[in-house]
Design a protein around this nucleic acid. Structure first.
Lengths: 238, 238
DNA sequence: TTTATATTTTTGTCATACCAAACTAACAGA
DNA sequence: TCTGTTAGTTTGGTATGACAAAAATATAAA
């Protein structure tokens, strides 16, 4: 899915260097956490100019394969779900700026959490249900404290992302939570909403307890539809 | 969710230039399809070196904000779902290389298509059902032609991604289709599987016709579980 | 008007240089 | 011996200038 497929690009010197390091990282020649050679070393090893080296390193950084802080040696970062989702983050952020972007992405979240709730209702084991229960109780105990409520709220939802034991899902939830906490300070603070949300969480939990996927779906939909009005108020200008 | 949050980076000159163009693209100062100024123009306008300009342009390209073919002027590409998903593509590709990555992502696809099938069973309108019907018939008519079958197969699934009229979904399907077609030549070619798959498609279609989400879900799961064996045979080394 | 050719821009790459930040090693004191 | 300081070295970020090759443009020819 690289650009090279869509345009009839001819390979640049930088592209070769990029793929060299890409392979070295993937096949373990360059271990995770290890720094890349210095730019001048690479220049000598591969017989290219520093310009090309710099371009390649930057590309690797943008691809999320290395962690490049200014003035520091780039550090190899093995592809992992967290790293990948994080690299995706800035792109998704931009989607929020297109007309209706927030709504579309929120709908995607609804679709996902509905599926997760159904899944949980059908297949959650004792441990998951115990986690869900404690997360719910922590959330209910935090209704007075807006900040704590926010944290326990996302934690409750996070349990749902853990049920299918697919490591991609927690990463997605983490990314969403990160984004939400960035904008949380702008969101209206209303304790009565906390009460409503906590009730919604309990409804979801009980539907899962009863192993009733349809009820779980309905509860999640009701909960997130209500949450949407909060989100819309915050992003009404989009 | 930029790296700047995780490390105590201090801004580089290039970063400033990047954000300048980022803003200009987002607020429409630089229109979609319009080429960026020439490098030397940017040098004069912003008083930076060409090194910095190149670095910034490359970063914008990696972010998917401009379409940069070698030796051509970079062209502004408004953030759209297609561009975003495409930019995400290389990252997702890497996830396929981690142990179990293929399985985890395929599970994600199952979760998504199950949700889409349920959605279609509940809310597909006449047009969608007509599209689905013609896609199904085209698929059934192509059982003998492996290549055509592949195309009509993905087209049938694509209709499901169109039902919720959320523009993110078709982009996701497009990205998946692109990836799949890249590896399609390696996949075993078995006409009897075409028959099975066509039957599975019909089962999905009929469940949607009957507005039976549970049956639709079951049909999709059966279909994709079978498809998984095909995928696994192709990527057994992962 | 269209086509072919010549001219000018522009990009990709290289080489070199400088500064400031990061790194390293020598050193002094506890 | 260990620790903290300091001076010297290395390295990344940026600037500048140069050149070949490809692209864009202008010009000439049909």
């Amino acid at each position: 899915m690289t650009d090279a497929k869509h345009h009839d690009n001819q390979a640049r010197a930088a592209d070769n260097l990029i793929s060299v390091f890409e392979h070295q990282i993937l096949d373990g020649t360059l271990q995770d956490g290890e720094p890349l050679p210095t730019e001048r070393e690479i220049v000598q090893t591969y017989g290219v100019s520093r310009t090309v080296v710099r371009e390649a390193v930057l590309a690797l950084s943008n691809k999320g394969l290395v962690d490049a802080r200014p003035r520091f040696r780039p550090v190899v970062r093995k592809p992992g779900y967290d790293a990948a989702i994080q690299a995706v983050g800035s792109i998704v952020m931009r989607l929020l700026t297109v007309p209706g972007g927030v709504r579309n992405l929120f709908d995607l979240r609804i679709m996902m959490e509905v599926a997760l709730a159904r899944e949980a209702a059908l297949h959650a084991d004792r441990d998951h249900i115990a986690d869900l229960k404690s997360a719910l109780e922590a959330n209910e105990a935090a209704i007075q404290d807006s900040h704590l409520f926010f944290e326990t709220d996302t934690a409750f939802h996070g349990v749902l992302y853990d049920v299918p034991s697919n490591p991609v899902l927690p990463s997605i939830h983490q990314a969403y939570t990160d984004w939400l906490s960035n904008h949380w300070k702008q969101m209206p603070r209303q304790p009565d909403r906390n009460i409503k949300n906590a009730r919604a969480h309990r409804a979801i939990f009980e539907a899962i307890l009863l192993r009733d996927p349809d009820a779980a779906e309905a509860a999640v939909r009701a909960h997130l539809d209500a949450a949407w009005t909060q989100v819309r108020e915050t992003f009404n200008d989009l």
